[in-house]
Simulated scan of single mutants.
Amino acid sequence: MSPPLAPTESAVAAAPAPDNEARRRLASWVSLAGGLIVFVAKMAGWQLTGSTALLSDGLESIVNVVAAGFAIFSIRFAAMPADRDHPYGHGKIEFLSAAFEGGLIFFAAAMIFYSAVGSLLEGPSVHEVDHGLTIAVGAGVLNLVLGWWVRREGRQTGSVTLIADGEHILSDVWTTAGVVVGLGLVMFTGIAWLDPLVALAMGLLLARTGFRLVRDAANALLDREDPELLERLVGAFNEAPVQGITNVHRLRAIRSGDLVHVDAHVFVPSHWTVRQAHEAVVSLERWMASRASFRGELALHLDPCHSRVCASCDLGDCPVRAEPSGGRRRLSTEEAVGPTGLARP
């Protein structure tokens, strides 16, 4: 294994908190155990009733079990420190895990469509509906509690894998609710073909959930811009109590699991010494990382100022000022992500 990378002096870095790691691992194991219990219950209900809707619900639970197992691996892998081969850490495995789970949901939706259409063509037969309803309601309640808890743990610990897993479990609650409605209609009307129709509706719902998970994971893997995070960073810069540093520009941020890696350029007075500029920028980095409320690292690159920057420079005693200062002005996010941080003339 490649040696871990030591953070540079100017980097503001934070490793995953140990208590967060313990909570993530516990949540992933609880998710796996709960998924196994629900899967066994649903398959027993299918064997008992012959309900295509319960079979489709059980097939979807297989995905829960496989996804929970992959989540355990992903969370352990994501917790590994950055090394020479992976200088930004291993957190992006969580996005791969979410995409994998979305793909599994698509597969489950396809299996549900296949089973439902086959049942409609062959002629559905459902029996012992009351027992099936009891099993479905019990599985739904268990998944509701489990999904809510796993998603909450994911949000509180910053785990994309657990959030996706919790969302998936909660989507299973909706499919189970569909089973309850379908079996209830069959019991009260005696129309057996309502059962596979409900299964088809659940397949559509699952396909939608799978698409959303894959889309969001792909956006994260492709480092799509996070406007809310950029706004927090720009707001922190605008409020920073550091004189002489102006016009943050080329602001970029990427996510790697629950860690964020931010870099940007700032203008510093051209007459400052390297040490003076470095100390000021390190103070600004720490301020921005604290105020923007993210876990990860922030690195600011130094650019020497020029005459266009003078108008927004708040440095009182400047021997190289070329134009009068109008005082420091607030930057917009659009200016901060641009090439200069300066408003267009």
Rank of each mutant, 00 (worst) to 15 (best):
S2Y: 04
P3S: 03
P4N: 07
S10I: 13
A15I: 10
P16H: 05
P16R: 13
A17W: 08
D19T: 07
D19S: 05
N20F: 09
A22H: 00
R25I: 04
A27T: 03
W29T: 12
V30S: 01
V30E: 01
V30T: 09
V30H: 04
G34V: 13
F39R: 11
V40Y: 09
K42G: 00
G45N: 00
G45A: 08
T49K: 01
G50W: 05
S51L: 06
A53V: 03
D57E: 03
L59N: 11
V63A: 15
G69V: 12
G69H: 10
I75H: 00
D83A: 05
R84K: 10
D85T: 10
G91E: 15
A98H: 03
A98R: 01
L104C: 15
I105G: 14
I105T: 10
F106A: 01
A108S: 14
A109Y: 01
M111P: 02
A116L: 01
V117Q: 05
G123I: 00
S125T: 06
S125K: 06
S125N: 13
L133K: 09
A136G: 01
L144C: 08
V145D: 02
V145T: 07
R151P: 02
R152H: 08
R152D: 10
E153F: 00
A164D: 02
E167Q: 14
H168C: 08
I169Q: 11
V173Q: 11
L183K: 05
G184K: 09
L185W: 08
L185N: 08
G190Y: 05
W193C: 06
L197S: 00
A201W: 04
A201E: 05
T209P: 02
T209F: 13
F211M: 01
V214A: 06
V214F: 07
D216I: 02
P227T: 04
E228R: 12
L229F: 07
R232V: 13
V234H: 13
P241S: 08
T246D: 04
N247H: 10
R252A: 05
G257Q: 00
D258T: 04
A264F: 07
V266N: 03
V268P: 11
P269C: 09
A277Y: 06
E279H: 15
V281F: 12
V281M: 15
E285P: 07
R286Y: 11
R291N: 00
L300Y: 12
H306N: 12
H306G: 14
V309M: 04
C313S: 11
C313I: 02
D314P: 04
D314L: 10
D314H: 07
V320E: 15
V320G: 04
A322T: 14
S325M: 01
S325N: 04
G326I: 04
R328I: 09
R329L: 08
G338N: 11
P339N: 09
L342Y: 13
P345H: 15
